[in-house]
Design a protein around this nucleic acid. Structure first.
Length: 863
RNA sequence: GCGGGCGUGGCGGAAUUGGUAGACGCGCCAGAUUUAGGUUCUGGUGGCAAUAGCCGUGGGGGUUCAAGUCCCUCCGUCCGCACCA
């Protein structure tokens, strides 16, 4: 195909992507071109995209995610970094079991089969992964090592087991972590979550709450949005716990972030789940009824947007710590047991909820903070000065907080305290297809960890998937073991680990250079490659995965297994891929192929002529029938066109609107560039010419401009790539190509210049369209691979222009332009500008009051 | 309700960070090539006017010689959290 020597660029045969792409993919694979080697003479760069769940088939969203990563990886490689760009499979999890249940077969077979299919898909897109480092989290080696980590955590006291109320997903028959419950529903199944009391394994993420929070401030390479979400999730509040003495002999401990308002307290409220409430319910039918009612209501609670504040007077009273006054104690539905101490003091004048509650039950409202604005009515929670508050009078809110806490401590009822919203992470899952927890239950010794020598605990293959329940539990022999401590009969733990456990350290494992190394967290390697310089994935993991991974990194460091405390230096969250949706008049979704535009420009159903309702762009999903299959696109347009398209036009962090026309446009561009390469070759452009010295001064005006402009293109593309604005990179490259096309007739007479330009064009385009560029590189006779070639550099002096078209403003409005030398002095330029007729028309003889000159930017006459 | 983001042509989006708004692409229009369609190449394309003018970055106000960009305010939209004491 390189023999195409037609003189007419329009007659060059189209780019044969299927041959070219296959050729280079095979070449890269055979030569192991993207193997990451530890090369201490170069700066390292670790770029990672969130690895894939092997669901069966990759979708366009994956393609976008991985293309962004691959562009970064190839760019950094070209910049001379030693790049680590691995991938693998997040391979444990429920869908494999569900598939086994539905279609028979085994989760393991299903998973590895999917991995095989999806790996081919990734390879067909030309992603520059180091496949040597590939692994799946369901590989025995990986999860075996994970069990070691679990034991290390256990030894460090970071793992414990307790009975607790859990979020139970009745569809998946499985426990969910708090993070996996969204709006009261399971994150995967969408089923309403139930409460159940079970023994569960927990990981002490709360031990790291403070650090997880404070370290966010140092993550300057993370989107503010993600950090905010994590901050809210961790939910730190500082305040004071206060003991109140009751008239029935017990104490109630409340927590408050506003101890300054203690003199405004007019009641106490405890949660329906509070031990005292439960105790009182035993002898008080009304309280019992209230609590039962509350529990019943709480199932449907999620449906209610705003819940009414309800409570019941317990007729218990407490002493105010400073006043000779009794406060009534209520059981109230808005007090949560799992936050703070499950009890509050109510200050209706300064808290919206307390206010609503007090209004309803006729409780007094006592104002203790005066606001600067007289019109602020209760509840008022802003700043101000304390009033009617004894020793706090006259203090500001901030001062009063301190003073109140101090006094409460002095009299022995208060304690400075910090509470977090973050709960420990429940990691037990009553499921087969996950990492077995390396613990045994012994009648004599209780819970006993396995010895390292007994690891790995492998999943048995011969399990049956039938009705609900954990197949491991039902296995005839698997769970029967001897107690590692006493040697008596014992049973294995049959719970497996949450799959988020698996994905919390995979990025560390990728660092290990010798994949046969038994130490899956080899420290020298980890410390060489970590942190991940650029992590890329969807925002949907803003809390779940990203918080767990941060925690794990810290916890592993505590255990001496790693030596970094934060995993991801820079985080990039890409948007979703969306496409237009179509429905018929019944509201049924239609495939794009079922729809066409009729002669009136309206959409109709092909088969029936029925009217079609065109919906907005929505996230691609099978149910909405607006998905596009990457395999089809690769088959029809090639990987490069697809790669180019998913990074074109739309900033990568925003949702991407898929259109067939847009894809066509990219396909046209790929061909346009290809024709340019072939045509250039036919005109003598080659590597030898590119290496000749170019004397800029001798060039024709327009060729010189093209040459210099291309240096601008290099700069712009590089800058845009640094800010991850791939859409702009594409725009700059397109612009550059257009300029070359405009001067095609000069190619033959200016071979060295065009050779240099085209060489750099290939380099610039290679990260996005690597196959095309690799082919062009070899076609024009350049050495080696463009994939490991140098990133082009621009000459600063070419960016500077000697003359410029300076805008002339009169009274701030554009009234013309004037060509000036960049170094012309102010006076010269004013002189020239005043001769421009269009400007003169607006000055029209009026005296010039002021003249503004900004070098290289603008001049402005004020008249 | 609280918190955060965003609002620029028919559409996706640029704008050197206060200095010629609309780069680049999609779509559309025209010309050339082609037997035709498609492809390709070239030109045009914010609106209203039609010579050189006026208006224009969600609305209103402000700062400035100069505002898409800064400030105030209102509206719309998207996302996150949602009784967190």
């Amino acid at each position: 195909m390189s023999d195409n020597k037609s003189a007419d660029i329009s007659e060059i045969t189209p780019y044969n992507f299927s041959i070219v792409e296959k050729k280079w993919q095979d070449f890269w694979a055979k030569n192991d071109s993207f193997r990451s080697v530890l090369d201490s003479s170069k700066k390292k760069y670790y770029v990672l995209e969130m690895f894939m769940y092997p669901s069966g088939k990759a979708h366009i969203g994956h393609v976008r995610n991985y293309t962004i990563g691959d562009v970064v990886a190839r760019y950094k490689r070209a910049c001379g970094y030693s790049v680590l760009h691995p991938t693998g499979w997040d391979a444990f999890g429920l869908p494999a079991e569900n598939a086994a249940l539905k279609q028979g077969g085994h989760p393991k077979d299903w998973t590895y089969k999917n991995i095989g299919v999806m790996k081919k898909q990734l390879q067909s897109l030309g992603f520059s992964y180091d496949w040597n480092r590939e692994f799946a989290t369901c590989d025995e080696k990986y999860y075996g090592f994970q069990q070691k980590i679990f034991l290390a955590f256990y030894k460090k006291g970071l793992v414990y087991r307790k009975k607790s109320e859990v979020n139970w997903d009745p569809v998946d028959n499985c426990v969910l972590a708090n993070e996996q419950v969204i709006d009261g529903r399971g994150w995967r199944s969408g089923a309403l979550v139930e409460k159940k009391s079970l023994y569960q394994w927990f990981v002490k993420i709360t031990d790291f709450a403070e650090e997880l929070l404070s370290e966010l401030d140092n993550l300057s390479g993370w989107p503010e949005k993600v950090k905010t979400m994590q901050r809210n999730w961790i939910g730190k509040s500082e305040g004071c716990s206060i003991k109140f003495k009751t008239n029935i002999g017990e104490e109630i401990v409340v927590f408050s972030t506003r101890p300054d308002t203690i003199f405004g307290a007019t009641f106490l409220a405890i949660s329906p789940d509070h031990p005292l409430a439960i105790k009182l319910a035993a002898t008080n039918a009304k309280i019992k009824a209230f609590i039962e009612n509350f529990k019943r209501g709480s199932v449907a609670k999620e449906f209610l947007d705003k819940q009414e504040k309800l409570g019941i007077d317990t007729s218990v009273a407490v002493d105010h710590p400073f006043l000779d006054k009794k406060l009534p104690v209520y059981v109230a539905n808005f007090v949560l047991m799992n936050y703070g101490t499950g009890a509050i003091f109510g200050t209706p004048a300064h808290d919206e909820r307390d206010y609503e509650f007090a209004k309803k039950y006729g409780l007094p409202i006592k104002r203790v903070v005066s606001s600067s604005n007289d019109e602020d009515e209760p509840p008022y929670s802003g700043d101000g000065v304390l009033i009617d508050s004894d020793f706090l009078n006259g203090l500001t809110v901030v001062e009063a907080k301190k003073a109140a806490i101090q006094k409460l401590c002095e009299i022995g009822v208060g304690k400075r305290e910090t509470f977090f919203r973050l709960r420990d992470w429940g990691v037990s899952r009553q499921r087969y297809w996950g990492c077995p927890i390396p613990m045994v239950h012994c009648e004599k010794c209780g819970i006993v960890p396995l010895e390292e020598k007994d690891l790995p605990v492998l999943l048995p293959y011969d399990v049956t998937f039938s009705e609900a329940g954990n197949p491991l539990d039902k296995h005839p022999t698997w769970k029967c073991v001897k107690c590692p401590r006493c040697g008596e009969k014992a049973t294995r733990e049959t719970d497996t680990l949450d799959t988020f456990f698996d994905s919390s350290w995979y990025f560390l494992r990728f660092c290990v250079n010798d994949t046969n190394d038994g130490d899956l967290l080899k420290k020298e390697d980890v410390s060489h490659w970590m942190k991940v310089d650029q992590y890329i994935g969807g925002v949907e993991h803003a809390i779940l995965h990203l918080l767990y991974a941060r925690f794990f990194t810290k916890a592993l460091a505590e255990c001496g297994l790693a030596n970094v405390r934060e995993p991801f230096e820079n985080l990039f969250t890409q948007g979703m891929v969306c496409a237009e949706t179509y429905r018929n008049e019944n509201g049924d979704w239609l495939f794009p192929s079922e729809v066409r535009k009729n002669s009136n420009g309206e959409y109709e159903v092909v088969a029936t002529g029925e009217k079609v309702v065109v919906g907005r762009f929505e996230k691609m999903s099978k149910s909405k029938k607006n998905v596009v299959d990457p395999d089809e696109i690769v088959k029809n347009y090639g990987a490069d066109a697809l790669r180019l398209f998913v990074v074109s036009d739309t900033p990568p962090e925003k949702d991407f609107p898929w259109t067939d026309e847009g894809l066509e446009g990219c396909w046209r561009f790929i061909n346009r560039v290809w024709r340019l390469f072939v045509y250039a070759k036919s005109k003598g452009v080659c590597s030898d010419e590119a290496s000749k010295n170019i004397n800029v001064g001798e060039l024709d005006e327009d060729v010189r401009k093209l040459y210099k402009d291309f240096h601008r293109t290099i700069k712009n593309s590089t800058d845009s790539l640094e800010e991850r604005a791939m859409n702009k990179v594409v725009a700059h490259i397109r612009d550059g190509v257009n300029s070359i096309y405009a001067l095609l007739e000069k190619i033959e007479a200016n071979k060295p210049v065009f050779s240099a330009i085209i060489r750099d064009l290939i380099k610039l385009t290679a990260p996005i369209a690597p196959h095309l560029c690799e082919e062009a590189w070899s076609l024009l006779g350049f050495d080696g691979l463009v994939s490991d070639g140098r990133w082009p550099t621009y000459r600063k002096e070419y960016l500077e222009v000697s003359t410029i078209n300076l805008p002339i403003q009169v009274n701030g409005k554009l009234r013309g332009t004037v060509e000036v030398n960049i170094d012309d002095g102010e006076d010269v330029i004013f002189e020239k500008a005043l001769q421009i007729q269009s400007a003169q028309n607006f000055i029209s003889g009026k005296p010039i009051k002021k003249k503004i000159f900004v070098k290289g930017r603008v001049i402005n006459f004020v008249v």
